[in-house]
Amino acid sequence: MPRVQFTRHLARYFPALRDGEFDGATLAEVVAAIDRAHPGLGGYVLDDRGAVRKHVNVFIGDDLLRDRERLDEPLPPGVTVSIFQALSGG
């Protein structure tokens, strides 16, 4: 089961949010599981079309997710998914 770590900024809107395991074979399924546990959180990570928001960065292990629209690739077993905010510099 993937382990997910979150930027602490999300805790402002979801105070009960903790890093932990969320079930899913793909990123789309993991985000759906996160949204079930914390209703509404999926809409913070993905836009109306189901794509990762422009200013959100998702890492699969150490690798930045490049295709922000296709979230149905199988995740490596036991991988850590990181959901961070993107920096725009400055």
Partner: peptide, 29 residues
């Protein structure tokens, strides 16, 4: 209009002391 997390609606029924998020309108698939 969150810079990172998208557009949300929020409402307060106590004059602005406490706020509750409301699901924003969503364009149909």
């Amino acid at each position: 209009d969150h810079g990172h997390w998208g557009v949300k609606l929020s409402r307060s029924k106590d004059g602005g002391e406490t706020w509750t998020e409301v699901a924003p309108p969503r364009y149909p698939e």
